[in-house]
């Protein structure tokens, strides 16, 4: 098994073995990033492919400073944004009024209650634009200003979309917890 350094060196020399090793080692992590942005497996795999092509052909530009996986994750995020822009016209634009219907009362979240899969499902079910901004802000830790530049939107749009995304997530988590409590009672 090649280690990270050997993989990078090998990929710089376009060696098939190293390229495959990179794929085998990182594909699942990177697909985990892509799926957070896309929500659909087929689209996420497209993003992964496009992103990895960029990784293989631009690996010379990876300076070796900072972590390799974060560098690749960043490429995935940027590729996902490109995909989002490209597919924007095909997206179903969810009206904000539709989203409010599953309104339940405010709950303070006990963070340890949710599994990773539950959280992923919550992210996956977000409308596309919300998902993008929530991922960028909450998980990747970008600032609203940076997000606004990346997505070519207004800073305030980013803020208000994030706020809405958060409200929606909070409600979804609340529903999740209620269902969990109910099944617990039945047992």
């Amino acid at each position: 098994m090649l280690d990270e350094k050997e993989i990078i060196e090998g990929c710089r020399r376009n060696e098939r073995k190293a390229q495959k090793a990179l794929y085998e080692r990182y594909a699942s992590i990177l697909l985990g990033v892509c799926i957070r942005y896309s929500g659909r497996r087929d689209e996420a795999e497209d993003i992964l492919q496009d992103g990895l092509i960029k990784v293989y052909f631009n690996i010379k530009e990876f300076a070796g400073k900072g972590s390799f996986i974060n560098w690749m994750k960043k490429i995935m995020v940027n590729t996902a944004i490109t995909h989002y822009h490209r597919n924007l016209k095909h997206q179903y634009h969810q009206d904000i009024e539709d989203i409010r219907e599953t309104d339940i009362d405010g709950v303070s979240l006990n963070t340890s209650e949710f599994t990773r899969e539950e959280l992923f499902n919550v992210i996956r079910d977000l409308p596309h634009g919300y998902r993008l901004i929530f991922n960028l802000y909450a998980i990747e830790g970008y600032k609203h200003k940076e997000i606004a530049e990346m997505l070519e939107i207004d800073v305030n749009t980013s803020k208000s979309q994030y706020s809405r995304a958060k409200a929606l997530i909070r409600r979804k988590l609340g529903t999740l917890r209620k269902i969990a409590e109910k099944t617990h009672e039945q047992e």
């Binding site: 699942s28 957070r36 990773r116 959280l119 992923f120 929530f134 909450a138 998980i139 830790g141």
Partner: peptide
């Protein structure tokens, strides 16, 4: 979300 989802993986 950050702690749980940063290491979220999915097999291709």
């Amino acid at each position: 979300f950050r702690t749980r989802m940063e290491s979220f993986t999915m097999d291709p």
